[in-house]
Design a protein around this nucleic acid. Structure first.
Lengths: 135, 135
DNA sequence: TGAATACCCTATTAAATCGATGGGATAATT
DNA sequence: AATTATCCCATCGATTTAATAGGGTATTCA
């Protein structure tokens, strides 16, 4: 299942992508427009900013804004930041690889074989979609 | 993330697929060979049996065995039985469809658009793999 | 026929994760 | 200085997951 964190994060990003001149938008406005708990959205936007996807401005007239053009924001990046590993099993993960402690031979493992294909296909989709493609 | 239930279930199925003459294999033997908690595996094999993927025989010399040929067991079936919906969001699920209560327009939703592609690609993989392909 | 074997079922638990919330500190405008 | 809005910490309830325990029931074989 896709977490609400990722879902909300994607919605917020697409909302911000539609704003002209990259004018800062307040959390409250995004939350209201997308039906998201404001406090929860707050923490999501924060992690997006910490990972270089958003910029922020404090004080009056402040808010969040896109830091890059939607065409330059890959879904692989967004998904890894919000949802974590793209692979369903650590032993087929490119960025978060981890060996299974119960599995003696990775090459012979049927789960490994299947999940490798799933990862490759998911990766293809995320690589071929930028934020601009979702508008 | 792939649940251990699914992971163990897949391993058990591939183990049973290698048994000649579909001779019944005891839970304890599968658990030991695949490093799985026996009691946990017990419940997994039970659901596989209830969903027509395995047969069982009680009493001495009993155990579990494949009920169909590995070539005839699609991964779509296995995944739906063990892991549940293939889609990451209910609003793009074929077998478990559900409307998002926070999303006014499904067609305009960016999450929907992206997750639809992910589902299609995953489905393609699962459709093109039988249990025999994992051996 | 009876005892051993092995499936079948329910309930419980510990740990982890998720979604959400509250309170207050910090920074930037006016 | 006062207002405004981001920033950050800490917690909380609900749910799910993985595993365990214990006993019931059906089947087989001697």
């Amino acid at each position: 299942m896709l977490s609400k964190k990722t879902k909300y994060g994607l919605k917020a990003l697409t909302f911000l992508a539609k704003i002209k001149d990259r004018e800062p938008i307040q959390i409250a406005e995004i939350a209201k427009h997308e039906n998201i708990s404001q406090k929860f959205l707050e923490s999501i936007l924060l992690t997006l900013r910490r990972n270089g996807l958003l910029g922020s401005k404090k004080g009056k007239g402040g808010g969040y804004y896109l830091i890059k053009e939607p065409e330059d924001i890959l879904m692989t990046t967004v998904m890894r930041v919000l949802e974590g590993p793209i692979a369903m099993v650590p032993c087929v993960s490119l960025n978060f690889y981890e060996k299974c402690d119960d599995c003696p031979d990775e090459e012979a493992c049927s789960v490994h074989k299947l999940m490798l294909q799933i990862r490759d296909n998911a990766l293809d989709v995320y690589k071929n979609n930028t934020l601009a493609d979702l508008l």
